[in-house]
Nucleic acid binder design. Structure first.
Ligand SMILES: [Mn+2]
Ligand SMILES: [Mn+2]
Ligand SMILES: [Zn+2]
Ligand SMILES: [Zn+2]
Lengths: 141, 141
DNA sequence: ATATTTAATGCAACTTTGTTGCATTAGTTA
DNA sequence: TAACTAATGCAACAAAGTTGCATTAAATAT
């Protein structure tokens, strides 16, 4: 729940996500607004290590995910990536979708395309993470 | 290339995979023959830490993959898993398929089902890793 | 405006997975 | 049985991510 400059009394609301609009939060929010593609935690740490500690970055990303502002997934090396949600809330993330990672430049994009997941005999399927790898538009041409 | 007890002169053959049938290699081969489901590197380290060093385990797994005997993929936490190949060789791995991981017991199975990967505008798709999560047969009933 | 409250931060130490270099061991071949 | 060298063990390392705790700074109350 992102609530900036409201008149709510903090002690009364559910505490899981971002409550205070700190410099660090502003920097990360701006970065995701500016860049539409996904960003890895590692990249953010490299990019903002002068502005804030890596612990802070991990903690803010975690909260922004709780808030339904970001969603996370694992890239090809099993490292954590984040991208903006569209229409999610702290109540539920309903924007599960495949991701495309360029093997050349490493860039990751969220795909709006739906992939049909097969049913598995006697198993209950919950979610599926799909990472498609190849060469992106820029690296291809 | 797994060549045990042959008469080839070692120095003449391509050196990438397993060449000598050591105790450690035998133990790991046996384990994958015995257990049909995938096994994580971490599990093997736990299971055989009295028999061999973790470095040895990682190196043997790596070679067995080169040999086309095992294939690897990342589980839900980004940790490395291995399972037997069917019909692969050191020349090429042609058994790329989705995997199912039980959120309850953690077990992973290879799925023979094919998943249709969407084409992505202006991108060249190479491979896709698909990890389906849910509840397995045993944990479900 | 100032004091109070406490969420957020920085830092150091830690955990976990996996890798590397090098001396030693043990399969394989001569 | 001796020689060759792939494979191993060990210790140290690397990288991603986590935890505890003292300190700082947003937000609120006065
Ligand atoms: Mn996405
Ligand atoms: Mn498999
Ligand atoms: Zn690219
Ligand atoms: Zn299960």
């Amino acid at each position: 729940m992102i609530l900036f400059f409201t008149t709510f009394k903090l002690s009364y609301i559910c505490v899981m996500g971002i409550l205070r609009k700190t410099k660090s939060v502003k920097i990360l929010l701006d970065e995701f607004e500016k860049q539409s593609t996904a960003i890895s935690a590692i990249t953010l740490i490299e990019r903002f290590h002068l502005n804030m500690n890596k612990t802070t970055i991990y903690r803010i990303l975690d909260k922004l995910e709780d808030d339904g502002f970001l969603h996370s997934f694992l890239g090809k090396n099993g490292h954590k990536w984040y991208a903006q949600c569209s229409g999610c809330s702290s109540a539920e993330h309903h924007d599960i979708h495949p991701h495309f990672q360029c093997s050349d430049c490493g860039k990751v994009e969220c795909l709006s395309t739906d992939v049909l997941i097969p049913t598995i005999p006697n198993c209950k399927v919950d979610v599926s993470q799909i990472l498609i790898q190849g060469t992106c538009e820029e690296c291809f041409s």
